[in-house]
Amino acid sequence: MISNHIGRTHRENIQLGSLTAFSAGMVNVISVIIFFAFTSNVTGHYAILAQEISNGNWYQALVVFGWISLFFLGNFTSNIIVINFRKTNAYLAHSIPIVLEILCLLAVGTYIQFYYKETLIETELLVSMMLFAMGIQNGLTATISNSAVKTTHLTGLTTDLGILASLFTKKKNRQNPELRRKWNLLLAIMSSYLLGGVCAGLIYLTINYNVFYIVCFFLLLVIGHDFYRIKMNSLLHKKQPFYRKVLKGQTPQLSNN
């Protein structure tokens, strides 16, 4: 899911998009419930920043600017890790940002559960950390999938869905497998994001702040899935060195000898 960035399959993109969008949807709804602030959509924050500047509320404008900057920094951090370590170990380079994201969300969840006094400064800092985590996730998924998957960018996603829906009015486009794959991917991300939000809203009523741990579990699934696959592949290589040396996507051929 995250170990390949070249020659990615459609299935890998759908798996990555769905799982990360589900967790982003959960994080966003939880942050609205607890902090009254969105943490995975930045377009709204730009509008709020402009509004606060026009109203002369400089403190609030700076706070929102800080949130946007942390989302930016999250994207920067994940991509800097990926481009610097990808050649050494692609899986590790792609896993480190997710581990960072998990650490941020765990820190927020634990802090809320044990220390949160609901002061404004705490709220602002915790929202900052969540925006940083979402920035990391969005940057990573976009980098790995060559910008095919952006889990928190629902504005762009809805735009693409609208465009594709209009393209599908032509038979030629409806039969285009590339467009159909893109449609399925976008639909999977949108549904997962929505489902994540709904689930977070529902389960928050019963399990409160533990929602953060559930989000971390889903992110661990993303890392764990590839870890398991890589381990299994290496194990099979050791056991069956000759049979497994067939290149992916190529039919085995008999040698002339």
Binding site: F35, F36, A37, I48, E52, Y59, Q60, V63, E118, L120
Partner: peptide, 11 residues
Amino acid sequence: WKLKGRGNILQ
């Protein structure tokens, strides 16, 4: 009383 969001919600 508590403030939430960016200081725009009074709880």
